[in-house]
Nucleic acid binder design. Structure first.
Lengths: 192, 192
DNA sequence: ATCACTATATATAACCC
DNA sequence: TGGGTTATATATAGTGA
């Protein structure tokens, strides 16, 4: 795309590598922006120069937003590939997740918290909610209404079983990738 | 870059938006790869189509790696820049938000839901939790423990006031910047 | 570093299947 | 969807200030 065709391999000359980096980085971010606008897509780009300088683009206010969505998406894919999910289960998954969320937050608040579990669990909760949100976003009206009605019934009939449900611990060990993302607790430890 | 020059604004025709998305996405990911190879840079790209499908590129084995580097980079910058925030106020902000979240989710689940309020509210909740998360992540251990103890007391003493608290509507208007991010509800409405 | 210039390589819009 | 073709718009390599 210039006077000469360049092979796609590391540019050895330091100066032209730097110049090319500057030009292509700008081009990449521009393309990312265009894609997000033209196609109404959410796009995030992170670039670190080989000397550690950061450049980024996000189609939303915060890049983190998209990253979170990425994590939950990966999370969701893992779940759906693991279980061949029957329709009935997945249909109400988002709202079930919210109910679980509710219970977890309750426990979170009512039990003594030691160590950094609060931070870690917040991350987990956040992922769960994000997943629920993704699913909710792509639902259509009828599904949504059905779900709501169904949910109301569930709530009504489940209220009595509260104790039982609370006894059922959420299995966070299934969230391996998510917890790998959360090295924040470690980072927090570094402050001390 | 084609037969005609295109303005950079949302493509209204659904079909050509989809086609353009497909082509430009491929182009973007290719450019990202080239940049990372040519200039020995770390590059991560995340793309969500407007229908929620995920596409990504990472110059390292895991995209998460780069994301983490991004977070530490941002964290480091944040710390080096001034922290103006009033300590007393921000101290418990994250956990207060979680408590509000709890109440809101409860209402969400126990009240009949009409229209798309459920989706919209989920977005709000998501933002609140995100805010809580951000703040929690940057807390230090002592703060965290203090908060937890304080919180436990609050919970204990607040339980009786439940009714009153539920009556107190959350003021979402304070979340202006966050809610501006959420154009998804609009997008969701378009499906219908 | 970045800016401007140009010749050229690439990306891609409109069109086909 | 996803892949071709072709004409055109863009990106950018090489160069110099």
């Amino acid at each position: 795309m210039g006077r000469k065709k360049v092979e796609i391999k590391r540019i050895e000359d330091k100066h032209s590598r730097q110049v090319t980096f500057s030009k292509r980085r700008k081009g990449l971010l521009k393309k990312a922006k265009e894609l997000s606008i033209l196609c109404d897509a959410d796009v995030a780009v992170i670039v670190f120069s080989n000397r550690g300088r950061l450049y980024d683009f996000s189609s939303t206010n915060s890049l983190t937003e998209i990253v979170q969505r990425y994590h939950s998406h990966v999370e969701a894919e893992k779940e759906s590939s693991a279980e061949v999910l029957d329709t009935e289960h997945s249909k109400y998954a988002s709202f079930m997740t919210v109910r679980e969320l509710l219970q977890t937050v309750e426990r979170q608040l009512e039990e003594p918290v030691v160590d950094y579990l609060s931070v870690t669990d917040l991350v987990q909760l956040e992922n769960q909610l994000q997943t629920a949100l993704m699913q909710a976003r792509s639902s259509k009206e009828k599904l949504l209404c059905e779900e709501n009605k169904h949910l109301e019934n569930q709530i009504a009939t489940t209220k009595n079983k509260r104790e039982v449900n609370n006894g059922m611990a959420l299995d966070f060990t299934n969230l391996a990738p998510a917890s790998m993302n959360c090295r924040q607790p470690k980072a927090t430890l570094n402050f001390l």
